[in-house]
């Protein structure tokens, strides 16, 4: 039994997974315990008012009135990055704004690629491999390359693995070289990107350049899942590196901005319908605040009020 392999392959992943699960649950639990005193939807489209007023489909989702419209708004935010799609860039000295979709494009590419890569990883954990995982795997890898590298064989190029890398490099590039983004980036922003890059680069290396024993890894993954890890571990150094990056990312997740993945579901400007005047929102901690009431007001301005009474509560133009 190899001590290093056991620590990196079993102990650290378990600790990281534990921190991840408990941490995320704790954060989500804490968020759900905080209260929402006001319904503060950001309305990005025409409200529902008069029945004949033009209200497009997008208006219904950008300014949702019903719960299902709100749900579609949330789904569009999560899966299509609707708000980023609206992005514009203000240009000086022309003093106008132009549409810009680069951030939307690369952010969306990154997140979708990551999702597909994660789904592809199911095949390490599940036996038999579910059909949809195989389907995604074959669609993702439809490009075949014949190579003589090491020995003549066919390599399936997994598109999402490469787009994941490209998108991450772009996201890092803009933080490093766009002046505004460099100013507003904190070390933690780079840390998240570097951890992800570590995961992706080690993963790509294993796939294309430095092959590792996949059967062995599958054995480990399935063992970890049922809390019965293999005892005769002998892991490749590159795989250990990959696993270390993944574990760090998992353990870092609950303490970082990466919690935006769960947080977006709690964002009150997006997850509430714009039906404020039809459905009253109750503030659970509302408390009375004493203001001036009518009687005090009347006392303060008695003369004025009596004069108004003499006028019969009506203001008329001067008689000419």
């Amino acid at each position: 039994m190899n001590v290093l392999s056991t620590i990196v392959g079993v102990v650290i992943p378990y600790v990281a997974a534990f921190v991840f699960v408990v941490g995320v649950l704790y954060r989500v639990f804490f968020w759900s315990k905080t209260v929402v005193p006001f319904k503060i939807t950001t309305t990005s489209g025409q409200q529902k008012s008069l029945p004949w007023l033009k209200r497009t489909w997008m208006d219904r989702f950008d300014s949702p009135y019903t719960n299902w419209e709100t749900a579609v708004r949330m789904l569009m935010e999560i899966f299509l990055f609707r708000s980023l799609w609206k992005n514009v860039r203000y240009e000086l000295p022309s003093q106008t704004a132009v549409n810009t979709k680069w951030l939307w494009l690369f952010a969306l590419t990154f997140h979708w690629s990551l999702l597909i890569v994660l789904i592809r990883h199911f095949r390490f954990f599940l036996d038999p491999v579910p059909p949809f995982v195989n389907l995604i795997q074959s669609l993702d890898g439809f490009i075949e390359v014949h190579t003589d590298f090491f020995q003549p064989h066919v390599v399936h190029i997994m598109i999402t693995g490469l787009t994941l890398l490209i998108a991450l490099l772009y996201l890092l590039y803009r933080r490093l070289f766009f002046p505004r983004e460099r100013t507003l980036s904190l070390p933690s922003d780079y840390l998240a990107l570097l951890l992800l890059l570590g995961v992706v680069i080690t993963g790509l290396l294993m796939r294309y350049l430095i092959p590792v024993d996949v059967a062995h890894i599958k054995e480990l993954a399935q063992g970890l899942l049922v809390f019965n890890p293999p005892t005769d571990l002998e892991l490749h150094w590159l795989f250990m590196l990959h696993l270390l990056f993944v574990s760090s990312l998992l353990a870092y997740f609950p303490f970082s901005k990466l919690m935006h993945a769960a947080g977006i579901l709690f964002s009150p400007t997006r997850n509430m319908p714009n039906n404020n005047r039809a459905v009253r929102h109750i503030n659970p901690w509302n408390y009375p605040v004493k203001g001036i009431d009518w009687d005090e007001f009347y006392e303060d301005f008695k003369e004025d009020m009596e004069e108004l009474e003499q006028m019969g509560y009506v203001v008329k133009p001067e008689e000419v």
Binding site: W31, T34, E181, L184, K257, G263
Partner: peptide
């Protein structure tokens, strides 16, 4: 008292 406050403090990714 304000979920908005707690969540907005936690989830900004500084995308710019």
């Amino acid at each position: 008292k304000y979920r908005s406050f707690q969540v907005f403090m936690d989830i900004c990714v500084r995308c710019g």
